[in-house]
């Protein structure tokens, strides 16, 4: 019997997407990517350095123009300028984005209150504890270690409502305990119907979180299972 098509659009649909930092298709960093991510799914982008993992993520987050193909997020072409996109997509890229004059706690309070959430104090306390920032909650980001700043950015993404999480190498600069907790948190995210798109070099994170994996290389793109994706990382 043929499978019935689902009427719900996927969280992310990439169709023959070419990405790169030039202006023509010749400057694409990898072959075209086609992949769907349903609600509650986890998509990992893996590959060696320079194969276009972060570039694809930036395009999916609407921060980079596509060289070819199309990406739809939540059933619409990506336009990060809209309120709807910003309300539903939480992005943590590989950059320090904070206001140096505000403390860790103030960043999270403003984020939660800015999204009009209720029980803000309790949520912020929970996030601070979950990401191991309790002792540093009143410190400015400039006084944190790079790993703690990474925790702050991740906590800010989790303290707000979202449908899709876009994470660029979230394991970077985290200790192994925090990586395990992050994997658990991302699994919970999926089980609650949220989607996760992440570029990563961590095979454990791929096995724990991903439902499918895009393996990028200079001359080919493969969409494989989580286990095969984790093995691809280990083989690099």
């Amino acid at each position: 019997m043929p499978k019935r098509k689902s009427s719900t659009p996927p969280l992310v649909r990439a169709s023959s997407v070419s990405v790169g930092y030039g202006s023509t298709i010749d400057s694409a960093v990898c072959p075209p990517i086609s992949v769907d991510l349903p609600a509650g799914g986890g998509l990992a982008i893996v590959g060696s350095n320079g194969t276009g993992k972060s570039t694809f993520l930036r395009a999916a987050a609407g921060l980079l123009d596509l060289l070819g193909g199309s990406i739809q997020v939540l059933g619409r072409p990506v336009d990060e300028r809209t309120q709807q996109f910003r309300a539903q997509v939480a992005v943590v890229l590989d950059e320090d984005s904070y206001l140096p004059a505000l403390t860790v706690r103030e960043h999270l309070l403003l984020t939660a209150r800015g999204h009009g959430m209720s029980e803000v104090t309790a949520r912020v306390n929970e996030a601070i504890e979950e990401f191991g920032l309790t002792a540093r909650q009143n410190a400015a980001p400039t006084a944190l270690s790079s790993g703690q700043r990474r925790r702050l950015l991740l906590a800010a993404a989790f303290v707000r409502p979202r449908t899709l999480l876009v994470l660029d190498e979230p394991e970077q600069r985290l200790d192994s305990g925090m990586r395990d907790r992050l994997a658990e948190r991302l699994k919970l995210e999926r089980s609650q119907g949220g989607g996760v798109v992440m570029a990563t070099h961590d095979p454990v994170l791929v096995r724990e979180v991903a439902s499918k994996v895009v393996v990028l290389a200079e001359d080919e793109v493969r969409v494989v299972s989580a286990e095969a994706g984790a093995q691809a990382i280990e083989a690099l």
Binding site: A61, L63, E80, R81, T82, Q83, R86, A87, V91, V92, L93, E95, D96, S97, Y98, L99, P100, T111, G114, H115, G116, A156, R160
Partner: peptide
Amino acid sequence: RAEMAPVLDRHFPISAF
């Protein structure tokens, strides 16, 4: 600061304009 780290602007449920 927001120009330097664009995520700061994209953090809230509000359009770019």
